[in-house]
């Protein structure tokens, strides 16, 4: 538990460092992109869905898997769609 806490705190510091330099222009893609990253819960969902536990565990895991996949696929795709619009001066 303590180890996990250390990892959590250190990772938060990295997050603060990396993100505080993101320009305002990219705030929306930043949100949707990081949101897709928070879909990492999909890893937990996979484990839960595959578990030989009771029916409840299975169904909760299945629901988690569906929702987490929406989050991951939707998040990364929509971020990509937004970012491809951000262009410097056009060529003409």
């Amino acid at each position: 538990m303590l180890e996990n806490l250390i990892v959590f705190v250190l990772a938060s510091f990295i997050g603060f460092e990396v993100i505080s330099k993101v320009p305002q222009t990219l705030h929306t893609p930043l949100m949707s992109g990081t949101n897709a990253i928070s879909g990492i819960a999909i890893v937990g969902a996979l484990m839960a869905a595959a578990m030989a536990g009771g029916d409840w565990a299975k169904w909760l895991g299945f629901a988690a898997l569906v929702v987490a996949t929406i989050n991951v696929i939707g998040g990364f795709m929509v971020t990509d769609r937004m970012l491809q619009m951000f262009k410097k001066k056009e060529k003409n």
Partner: peptide
């Protein structure tokens, strides 16, 4: 699960900054 903790912390920090 370290993957979840690290990623979650990154996202949490980023959201908090915003």
């Amino acid at each position: 699960n370290t993957a979840l903790i690290v990623s979650g912390a990154l996202v949490g920090a980023s959201g908090l900054i915003l």
